[in-house]
Design a protein around this nucleic acid. Structure first.
Lengths: 353, 353
DNA sequence: CTGAAAGCGCTTACAG
DNA sequence: CTGAAAGCGCTTACAG
């Protein structure tokens, strides 16, 4: 039990008006509660007339099915918990929207949780959600999550689908963008535009997605016979402010890059800010690519070349993978890599020589 | 009961591993279930030693509190339903984020629902959510919602907070941006920039927020001694595409406006697109203002002058208002107007004469 | 085809 | 301070 949290309030009214129950309906019609229950669950066993009478009474009394009670008795659940870092990130908002949509179609309700990238809050949120007995979890783990601690709070046999961030030693299902290929595509695109001095900008090297993206970047470089320079691997928290602040690090060495593959769109937008404030025009003097295709990417100045993963569709996919898992609890963990497409815009134009 | 929806799956494993219950703990320790329950709920009645033994056993068996069972018995609920049109709208995503954050702090869990602006889907979603017995609803109604139908599905004594869209004949609590004052501020700002021919562009006149905004617009005009022209009141669905398509309607009359107060940012962004495609440069040849300050507003070309309402803070406020209502079910309906601030950017520059 | 009984996991008077 | 009993609203064998 969670001892920090107070709450849980009485239903409206001093003396909570009792809701209409199967008992009320049964009495009114003159049948047993079992019969009412069978009608509710659409059993074919019930006599047509009995069914009709019960259904009429159900409507008359405006009966509302109490699914939580039914779930308790049946030892099932009709909810799924969706836990993400931050709904105000448009990528995750789209994702959440897709999850909720797909779950709703299957009769599940979505329990929401957000962690603000804090592993501690994540533990607290998951623990609270567990008390509501969701059938499963769709979790985009906070950076720095501890797999052990997660397993602890989620229990051994929980149905969990990890999204976006891989976890050391976790044997849960995992859905990820094709980070490596995405960064590869972006880098190759820049090379095709004539760039030879290309940095990789932003993200935390420790995070699995940043790691994957750097590998793709590296692969494209080496395929083109270009050297990888350690001083052009620049880390930054994935927010605009820090990215802008770290812009200078690109130009500290003797040789200066003419382009940067950025960890994601937010970082790329920050970098463009940083460039502009130095009098370097993104898209004209310096090429930039992002990752995610958030809605701001297309309206940025210049519009941002990026990789699109269709987050809403990823959400639907995540939901569907989790539901598959429910039907098949003993199957081996799945690892699904969703494809990613390059969206070329003006931020990655060829530079005049 | 909802007859369209199937679903609700067994817990993991062919034969669902029984979860650890108070009974298990009670047996292991050699006390009654009542005592375990008292320990769980932190009752001071329990002997210190007994408590310690129970708590140790709770940890040892990794007991997880089943709050849904407790809620059933106590006739309470610890969830609140949040129903919005579209999570992928950044304004609502921020709002949802604030709601969830504030509810979480009070020990509530958020049930998510989205309607895609469809009243029919809204009914279905609300009906499903009702079966999960949430304590209350935070609802941003779909356009064209039927108050009667809503009251029907939500029941008489439901705790409901309406957000953003007023509903004819509804006596639920209502939280709204200051639409009227916002549009007034935007219009006055354009007048101060030297504009005298100002249109109001976008939104459905039937929607309450559009209606309010038009009133504010009108008030600013009349204060400045400017005439209201019916042909400069142009409707458009609040999406970018339709707004862009309707751009032409601004220039059909003899006299052409030099500026437009737009229903919201999305419409303004669409209008800017429409202007550009006609060779009219927004911010240089034609001034534009929006409403909402979505994240794209600041990175648009040119950056969009708009009204900011701090949607995350509105979310927190909505949560807090609903919780107030729970404590005070018999108070009169509240009507709360949240202030709105003008954010001046380049899209509303003074035009060269 | 229908009903009586037991039970999901918890809590709450009521005794003692 | 602790336990026995009843019950939240539902469902599920089991009889008949």
């Amino acid at each position: 039990m969670n001892d920090k949290k107070p709450a849980a309030s009485q239903r409206a009214g001093k003396e909570a008006k009792r809701a209409v129950t199967v008992t009320d309906i049964a009495q009114a019609v003159g049948v047993s509660r079992a019969t009412v229950s069978l009608v509710l669950r659409g059993s074919p066993l019930v006599n047509v007339d009995t069914r009709a009478k019960v259904e009429a009474e159900l409507r008359r009394q405006r009966y509302v099915y109490n699914r939580t009670a039914a779930n308790l008795r049946r030892r099932t659940s009709s909810s799924i918990a969706l836990v993400i870092n931050d709904l105000s990130n448009p990528f995750f908002a789209e994702f959440a929207s897709g999850v909720d949509e797909a779950l709703g179609e299957k009769g599940y309700v979505t329990l929401l949780g957000s962690t603000s990238e804090s592993p501690a809050r994540q533990q607290a949120v998951l623990s609270t959600l567990m008390e509501h007995t969701p059938t499963g979890f769709i979790l985009s783990p906070a950076e720095g999550s501890d797999t052990q601690a997660l397993r602890q709070v989620l229990g051994v046999n929980a149905n969990v689908l990890l999204f976006n961030r891989e976890l050391e030693g976790a044997d849960w299902d995992f859905l990820t963008m094709d980070n490596q290929n995405g960064a590869y595509l972006a880098t190759r695109h820049l090379i095709e535009q004539g760039h030879r001095d290309i940095a990789f900008f932003g993200g935390h090297a420790a995070s699995s997605s940043c790691h994957q993206r750097r590998i793709g970047y590296q692969r494209a470089l080496s395929e083109a016979g270009l050297d990888l320079r350690q001083d052009w691997l620049i880390e930054s928290a994935p927010n605009r402010l820090e990215a802008a602040a770290r812009t200078g690090e690109l130009f500290e060495g003797g040789q200066r890059p003419s382009a940067a593959v950025c960890y994601n769109d937010t970082v790329a937008l920050g970098l463009m800010l940083g460039l502009t404030s130095r009098g370097i025009r993104p898209g004209a003097d310096f090429a930039v690519t992002g990752f995610d295709d958030i809605s701001e990417a297309s309206v940025a100045v210049p519009p941002l070349t990026t990789l699109t993963a269709d987050p809403r569709e990823r959400g639907r996919q995540a939901a569907s993978l989790l539901l598959q898992r429910l039907d098949n609890p003993d199957a081996a963990p799945m690892r699904v890599v969703a494809p990613v497409q390059l969206r070329v815009r003006e931020s990655s134009a060829a530079l005049p020589r």
